[in-house]
């Protein structure tokens, strides 16, 4: 257990109380590492000797999510000694959602808060990437394909409605649990990917704590840090002179630094590294699509471009990026299109 668990939980409770009055409590529709899904409660209760009805699943799920975050933080610090200064940082997992993940560098020791929404989105990316489709010869091919598309489309719609602050119709989202995917092309890869993407989210916010105090946020300082290549920024500047470099530069730095930290954690295993990198790029394609559907201006396109460049540098080819784009065309993009149909009155 981390030394600062008590302080972390204190910050958790503060945020939970503050947002509790007003934020969207959509935790029952979201999933995160450590959460026991409603459909699995009976099984878990029988394994652990708990009484299902008497068990406070909310509390268990909340604590397990927080423990998972502390594990991510410890893993990242262990693999990246230069991040040891973040030992005292409080990495808070919040089950409620205000659609936000944020690093607060100025609070003593640093505080990171990550909503369940983004962890659930990481799960959406991992599961949709590996969901198994039956062979075309399967007599139930069309039904199964439709079921998979409807499941992920409903989740895409959920994320859109949370971010748009639309009051959620509970009945509509029960479908998510009823159709929870259980068949994957590679179940181990899916679990690994979900964990790796969750770790990346924490690493991204930790990178902000490391580098982005307000005084350090200027282009000269960023170029001196050398995390981002000048050529990438020049290319972005050349294609878009509307969005100021300042608006995306520090997010890109945090992304690249987070990837580096995560790769260090994975060691020299090229299969794990390439699985992580390909799924990360896929998640950013999904994030970009989500923000398009929600209608908010974000810097996900600029970030995806630089992540793609970095992946090319690390792997020495464009293959992973190309593979992810292909997968997105037939998976993520389709689910957002179906979500659009579901949204129509």
């Amino acid at each position: 257990m981390p030394d600062n668990l008590e302080e972390t939980l204190l910050w958790h409770d503060r945020f939970d109380r503050a947002f509790g009055v007003t934020a969207s409590d959509c935790s029952e529709y979201l999933d995160w590492p450590g959460k026991t899904l409603p459909s699995a409660q009976a099984h878990i209760a029988s394994l652990t000797g708990r009484d299902r009805e008497e068990t406070d699943w909310n509390m268990l799920n909340r604590v397990r999510g927080q423990v998972k975050f502390d594990v991510y933080k410890s893993e990242l610090i262990q693999a990246n000694p230069d991040a040891a200064v973040l030992q005292e940082a409080k990495v808070v997992f919040l089950m409620r959602s205000i659609g936000d993940a944020r690093a607060m560098t100025e609070i003593p020791g640093g505080v990171v808060r990550v909503d369940a929404l983004w962890l659930s989105f990481a799960s959406f990316a991992a599961q949709s990437l590996f969901a198994a489709y039956p062979p075309a010869s399967d007599p139930n091919f069309d039904d199964i394909r439709l079921g998979i598309a409807m499941h992920f489309a409903t989740r895409a719609l959920l994320y859109e409605e949370i971010l748009l602050h639309i009051p959620l119709e509970k009945d509509k989202y029960e479908f998510i649990w009823e159709t929870w995917p259980v068949r994957f092309d590679d179940g181990d890869a899916m679990i690994f990917t979900w964990t790796a993407l969750g770790r990346f989210l924490v690493a991204h916010e930790m990178a902000h704590l490391l580098y982005h105090e307000p005084v350090s946020c200027n282009e000269d300082a960023a170029m001196r840090r050398g995390i981002v290549r000048q050529g990438w920024i020049d290319a972005l500047r050349a294609t878009d002179d509307v969005v100021a470099v300042d608006e995306y530069l520090y997010e890109i730095e945090a992304d690249i630094e987070a990837i580096r930290m995560c790769l260090n954690f994975l060691g020299n295993n090229s299969l794990l590294q390439s699985t992580f990198l390909a799924s990360l790029y896929y998640m950013f394609l999904c994030l970009e699509e989500l923000s398009l559907r929600v209608g908010t201006a974000t810097v996900f396109p600029q970030r995806r471009f630089c992540i793609g460049q970095y992946i090319g540098l690390v792997t020495g080819s464009d293959d992973l990026v190309g593979h992810s784009e292909e997968q997105f065309k037939f998976r993520g993009k389709v689910y957002f299109d179906v979500a659009q149909e579901l949204r129509q009155p």
């Binding site: 944020r102 690093a103 100025e106 902000h208 982005h212 608006e247 997010e251």
Partner: peptide, 21 residues
């Protein structure tokens, strides 16, 4: 009372938070 200037959200939004404990 804490002030968190220019904190960066995962979607890139910048915020200034005044946190009153």
């Amino acid at each position: 009372v804490h002030m968190s200037r220019g904190s960066r959200g995962f979607d890139g939004t910048i915020a200034n938070d005044v946190i009153i404990l």
